[in-house]
Computed example of a mutant assay.
Amino acid sequence: MEKEPILTVKDLSIAFHMYDKGLEQYDLKVISNLDLDVYSGEIVAIAGSSGSGKSLLAHAVMGLLPENALLSGTIAYKGKILDLADKEKLRGKELALVPQSVAYLDPLMSIGTQVSGKGAPKKKVTLQKKIFQRLQLKENVEKLYPFQLSGGMARRVLVSTAVLSGADVIIADEPTPGLDLEMALETLKIFRELADEGKAIVLITHDIDLAFHIADRVAVFYAGTTLEIADANDFLEGPEALRHPYSKALWKALPQNGFEPVPGFQPYAKYLPGGCLYFPRCPHRSDECEKKIPMKNVRGGRVRCIYAD
């Protein structure tokens, strides 16, 4: 890995300007003080329950947030802090997204044109055919339109588009749902190969069992913030190697590890607790946990917990 990350997210917060009853205005904060760095040549998997801010992070990096979004903190690419204009210039060229929704495909454009581009050079068309073959997409798929594809086919098309973009950073937002195990593994293998060639991959996934084996590091999100960033091997070793109580609980909740539930639920964005967002559910909580807690270095990883050692 290079000394400096290719993508850095520092103290990111995102709120949405909303209207309540009687047209009363308020700002709903959905991401708070989120940190993440990604290096060329690695896959960083992002794990966490629904509503933890994973997809919002992807949209913030790509400059795809709606107009009522209020963003603070910094997003930097190759050391340069990006504004919206920068993100628009980089999008699809140096920054690529595999979106979670297949609705991102243009319904009026053939698949081949969307993946390779109109009038694409022969080299790119040849590469597109090879990727289609690996993802078990028949050659005639390039002549079809999105409505003619199954959900799994459409998802594989989106993966192909990101791969062919040549981007240095690829954010894959849930690229495997709807795929059988063989195809999911092949898709992740492609991302692994891209990382080994020097690309940086951010893999947002609920298939964390697969992610632990394909990723270099894992970032654990909860209620819109980062609780831990650790080597993927730490998750394979078990809770003793992890640092945050939520990461340990996430490991124990996996079917093969006992399927142990945690009492309580992830807080709604409008009613977040002060201090540690996991505080209400944590078995180790104390009054100190109600204060703002920064990320710190612990045993080769980073964690947002005063008791982690």
Rank of each mutant, 00 (worst) to 15 (best):
T113L: 14
Q114F: 10
V115N: 02
K118A: 15
A120L: 03
K123A: 15
T126S: 15
L127Q: 13
Q128W: 11
Q128N: 12
K129D: 15
I131S: 03
R134P: 00
Q136Y: 12
Q136H: 14
Q136S: 14
L137F: 05
L137M: 07
K138A: 15
E139L: 09
N140V: 12
N140G: 02
V141T: 13
E142Q: 14
K143Q: 14
L144C: 10
F147I: 09
Q148S: 07
L149M: 06
S150H: 06
G151V: 03
M153P: 00
M153Y: 06
M153C: 02
M153R: 06
M153W: 06
R156C: 01
V157A: 02
L158G: 01
V159K: 01
S160P: 00
S160Y: 03
T161S: 11
T161W: 01
T161Q: 13
A162M: 02
V163Q: 03
L164C: 03
L164F: 07
L164G: 00
G166W: 04
A167Q: 00
D168C: 02
D168V: 00
D168M: 04
V169I: 04
V169P: 00
I170N: 01
I171W: 03
A172Y: 02
E174I: 13
T176H: 04
G178W: 05
G178P: 03
G178R: 04
D180S: 08
L181W: 11
M183V: 03
A184E: 14
L185I: 12
L185E: 12
E186V: 11
E186K: 12
K189H: 15
F191L: 09
F191A: 05
R192A: 13
R192K: 15
E193V: 06
E193P: 01
D196Y: 08
E197K: 14
G198S: 02
K199M: 03
K199I: 02
K199Y: 03
A200Q: 02
V202G: 03
V202Y: 01
L203F: 11
L203C: 09
I204S: 07
H206A: 15
H206R: 15
H206W: 14
D207A: 15
D207V: 09
I208N: 07
I208R: 11
D209G: 15
A211S: 04
A211M: 07
F212Y: 13
F212H: 10
H213S: 09
I214Q: 06
I214D: 03
A215S: 15
D216H: 15
D216A: 10
R217Q: 10
V218M: 06
V218P: 00
A219K: 09
A219G: 13
V220T: 10
F221H: 10
A223W: 10
A223F: 10
G224P: 07
T225G: 12
T226F: 05
L227A: 06
L227C: 09
L227T: 06
I229H: 03
I229P: 00
A230H: 02
D234I: 02
F235V: 05
F235D: 05
G238P: 02
P239K: 12
L242H: 01
R243T: 02
R243F: 12
Y246S: 09
Y246P: 00
Y246H: 07
K248H: 01
K248N: 05
K248S: 01
A249W: 11
L250C: 07
A253E: 05
A253N: 08
L254W: 12
P255K: 11
Q256R: 14
Q256A: 12
Q256W: 13
N257V: 03
